[in-house]
Design a protein around this nucleic acid. Sequence first.
DNA 1: TTGACAACTTACCTACTAGTAAGTAAGCTT
DNA 2: AAGCTTACTTACTAGTAGGTAAGTTGTCAA
Lengths: 198, 198
Amino acid sequence: MSNPDTKTRILNEAQRLIHAYGYQGFSYKHIAERLGLRNAAIHYHFPNKADLGTAYVERLLTQFSGYRDHLNQKYANDPVLRLQRLTAIPLNYLSTPGMTCPLGMLEADIRFLPAPMLQATHALGQAMRAWLAEILEQGRALGVMQFHGDAKTKALASWAMLQGASLMAASHDVELYEQVVNQLFTDLRIDNAAQETL
Amino acid sequence: MSNPDTKTRILNEAQRLIHAYGYQGFSYKHIAERLGLRNAAIHYHFPNKADLGTAYVERLLTQFSGYRDHLNQKYANDPVLRLQRLTAIPLNYLSTPGMTCPLGMLEADIRFLPAPMLQATHALGQAMRAWLAEILEQGRALGVMQFHGDAKTKALASWAMLQGASLMAASHDVELYEQVVNQLFTDLRIDNAAQETL
DNA sequence: TTGACAACTTACCTACTAGTAAGTAAGCTT
DNA sequence: AAGCTTACTTACTAGTAGGTAAGTTGTCAA
């Protein structure tokens, strides 16, 4: 291979563009121009846009799974810390102005996603909601979080909140997302001292 | 005027298409085909796409303001009922499969909105959040709702939740939105009897 | 040194986008 | 009847989209 990581560079650039403009907001031409390639070169590595999009989501899923497993092991008995890390994920993206986090982004563009990409996206969403439910359940069991109703439903609602907040933050400012996360912690009656370390 | 309401028919069709596919997901061609007109006829009534989009949001804002004022008058002393009506708004849209409610839709497409449309959208969002904050504040004052922290922040978080939920519901099913609304009511410690009437 | 393969490029295609210029037919106004 | 206006149509533009077929170049293995 003359340039072993062109494929990776394409994927990286696609990710950047997806986070900035969404799935249907970027084109092969955009990638080609940024990387000094021609349109057809992208098609060589990713025959069609759905392949590229699916590769992007699958990489996200792999990254997320690794991070989740790592935190589950490292902070096995500290659901509050794990929740802090979970809610901090979008901040990595939102800190760059004009960038949305994948959470909200994919949900916003969901109508345009090709079938295989949609499937991968649903898998990612489900994995994240399941993790959140697990954290909440343990938090309540240990007495460090308080909430009413089923943990899964609470996780779903909290998830919707984070997703909505990350979308709003992308078009306003990051501070908005932080306010919502603070409210989430307040609602869960997590004491402020722990919240400070966020 | 030979056909006085062509303009309105265009706006109606644009609304339908925006709710189904988003702002950048519909074209003049789609409208023209549905209405048996030519592309240029749309341009005659709405010189460019931004004009059409802005007209759509402004009509939404007018409709919302009217509805809010009406409910504020009718249920001036019943914030729970007003909250139920507010959270029921997206259901009108979500009940048709494949349709998103304007709430989530506009937020999802926000990166593509032309300036004047963006302004109108922000005005609409702010109006709805302000109304929600007002309802929550009154609810807590009357002792029919319970929550911690500032009412405005709680409104922001709840708003993010509803927005996220309406987006998710559009790609899954309405029941998901209803679950999230139920959780919101549970979190606010609103008694179940009242909730039944939702 | 030949051949195969990887990693491209050139050149092209069809479909669609928003938008425009010019023309037309009907109706209203004076 | 003349002229203006409304509400369009026909025909077009420039630009972008995703995608493809065929050719080119460099590297490596036999």
